[in-house]
Amino acid sequence: MNETWIALKELRENRMAAVGAVIIIFLVFVAFFAPFLAPHNPLEQNLEKRLLAPNSEYPFGTDELGRGIFSRLLYGTRISLEIGVIVVGITALLGTILGCISGYYGGIVDEIIMRSVDVVLAFPSIILALVIAGLLGPGVFNLILALAVTHWPGYTRLVRGMTLSVKEKEFVEAARALRASSFYIMRRHILPNCINPVIVLATLGIAHTIIFAAALSFLGLGIQPPTPEWGAMLKAGIPYLRSAPFLTFFPGIMIMITVLAFNFLGDGLRDTLDPRAKEMLMMRK
């Protein structure tokens, strides 16, 4: 508990991370209270009020079917954060468990797991995700699946490496001498020592996932209309790039802010949680 407090305190002193955290808290708030904050129903079309420039009734203007862009963006926050958190949750959990097993047992188990990691990493992840989403068809579930399949190897590699070094430590040997089970050792001794870098990677991973999901939706393989998703909104705005640029401007800004916020926080977390990076920082100073 004490350590966590110290970390949090340090984090607060890291200005970038603090900014990132504030933005994220704000976004979560927006996502949670979207129905109360949005002035209009994001799905309600108003064909008489198409492509209105930002005005007092529609703060960010209306899209090509007369829907309020502001309201759609608010609801879009929900979807993007949801996808980011779910995908990272799945991949981090799966990747960590596999990495831990791989590093702890070694031998043939290690070979199998790490070679499958190599196989996944051998493909450019966007292509692999495109193939999966293309084969299974577009939709939220398939989008999450495509993202999960392409994003777990990073965690596995990281945790395996950590496990390899931690398992040689004296306290692990001591536990083994006390005839602790492998499961107990992994749970009580190895995982807690690997968790910090995983947290850093996961925070950065959310940013990556959000932009990846937006890209897939942009290519028409992600969220299906009329769901207000940022990437899909960007795509829908392309024909109006010249005549009504606000259609693409605001979703683009939202994606940028969100991704930036997670990146700031992730970098800050790395500085505070990853001792080696901190040492290097000290040396530079």
Binding site: L65, G137, P225, P226
Partner: peptide, 28 residues
């Protein structure tokens, strides 16, 4: 063409008015 998905979205909204749910599936 870029108009067709829009047409589909309008149809989806209009058919909702008469109580019919439409799931859009955009494919290649």
């Amino acid at each position: 063409s870029p108009e067709l998905p829009k047409i589909a979205e309008v149809a989806q909204a209009q058919l909702k008015e008469i109580g019919m749910g439409v799931k859009l599936q955009m494919v290649e």
